[in-house]
Amino acid sequence: MIESSTRKRDVGTITAAVNDALHHLPGDNRFCLMLIGSWSLNLGTPTSDIDLLLVSDERMTGTESLQAFQRQIALSLSWVQIENVSREEFGRLVAKAQLPSYQSLSSRTLELIYKYTNSHVLHGNDVFRELTEAFSLEDFSVKIADYYMSRSMNVYQDVLGARLTEDHRSAVVAVRELVGLAVDALLALRGDAYPKAKWRLKRATRLQLAPSLMAAIDRCLVGGPTGELADHWQWIENALMLFRQLHFLTVYPGGATLPFPGLDATVAGNPWAFVLRANGKWLITHQDRFFEANEQSITVLFALAMALPPAQVINVVGNNAVPNHGDSTTSVDTSLQLLEKLGAL
């Protein structure tokens, strides 16, 4: 056992403590033991709790063997939380990851799917591989990103409602959540599909976004409106534009090379015109209703949101964003007319 006077917390120490206590668990009950939570996401600190997941043929919750196992680890590592589920329960959870859409699943269920299947295995690699054979992180990540962007539509309605009632405080809360969902979608598409706002900013540093864009995200999610903008709707509108810029990156990752404006920058376009890509189609709001828009028009709208010439954005997203192969100026003018008609300008 690790002496309490030499306690420290890192994956190596946790693994040693677990291996030292494994003899308490019965050998006739096949199991795998995983490190989950902040430690499995490489976000653990010396003061972080240690969360373990035990998946066994039969549940061992409440048994003397599991209690003895937990007592020994706790003596070595201080606070340790152990979750125990059966193979059948774990299998049902993985099966939910195969659903074509996650809109019917709770955020708690999605969190468990990700936390359980993307853990650090401490014991029972063979059992873990059997349990997760049907799970695809890539497929899960894409569905999670769609889940976040679909949720953003509901949050946007909250922003609109707050605007109608002139409830500035509620609008700030809602628009910060909107930007947070866009960050979560970006993280998911980059392989970090942890469906929880916890550690959002710390995880966002992995996106390697432009410093100005990271600063805008930080100011929006942590700082909020200050100074002259503390009670001004201009900050809300700027944050809505930030959401539009982040949504652009979820669809066109190559757009990260563009010079994004800061949170206080003046950009063109109506920030209250909500844009969403859902089921392979671009949707845009007009008087609280959604209408389908072509990709060329959306590209022009993104360009306006980033204070860039439309052609510069088109170069990033590719020629497939230009359905009209004639004069590009005419094509942009046509898109501007459509955007104006839809109230996006």
Rank of each mutant, 00 (worst) to 15 (best):
A265K: 06
L33W: 07
T329R: 14
R59C: 06
R203Q: 07
S4R: 09
A188G: 02
T13D: 00
L93W: 09
S65T: 03
R244H: 15
L75Y: 05
I314C: 11
R30D: 14
N84R: 01
M149D: 08
V159I: 15
R7Y: 13
D146F: 07
S212Q: 08
G269V: 05
Y252S: 02
G280S: 09
T266R: 09
L240I: 04
D231G: 02
V55A: 15
R87E: 14
D218V: 09
A145F: 00
L137P: 13
N279K: 09
L258W: 12
L75A: 10
G62M: 04
L99Y: 10
V322P: 01
P271Q: 01
D20W: 10
G254I: 00
W233M: 07
P253N: 01
F31R: 15
D49V: 10
Y156V: 04
A21E: 04
H24Q: 12
T13Y: 09
N270Y: 09
Q98R: 13
V121P: 02
E111V: 00
F140T: 03
P211E: 12
S76P: 00
L160F: 04
D139V: 14
A97D: 03
A344N: 11
A17N: 00
A344F: 11
N84L: 00
S5D: 11
S107D: 13
L160S: 04
Q208V: 00
L221I: 15
A171K: 04
A273K: 07
V80Y: 07
M60H: 01
I144F: 11
R163Q: 15
G227C: 10
A215C: 03
A95Q: 15
F69W: 04
S170G: 09
W282C: 05
S136K: 07
Q296C: 14
A265D: 15
A311K: 13
R92M: 12
S4Q: 08
G124Y: 05
S38E: 04
N324H: 13
K196I: 09
R219Q: 10
A21K: 00
T329P: 02
I217V: 12
K202Q: 14
G44F: 03
P259L: 06
R244Y: 10
Q67L: 13
S150M: 11
G124F: 11
G124C: 06
T13Q: 08
I314Q: 12
R151T: 02
V85P: 03
T63G: 04
L178I: 08
L22Q: 10
E177G: 12
L339P: 10
E3I: 04
G27N: 07
G37Q: 06
G124R: 02
L35D: 03
P211I: 12
S65Q: 14
L187K: 05
I217S: 08
T226A: 09
V300M: 07
L54Y: 05
E83R: 11
R289I: 01
K341Y: 08
L131K: 02
G62Q: 05
Q296N: 12
V251K: 07
V183A: 06
L263G: 10
N42E: 15
V316M: 01
Q312N: 05
R129Q: 05
F135N: 02
E83H: 09
A293I: 12
L52A: 11
F140E: 02
Q337I: 06
A68Y: 02
D231N: 09
R244T: 14
V159R: 12
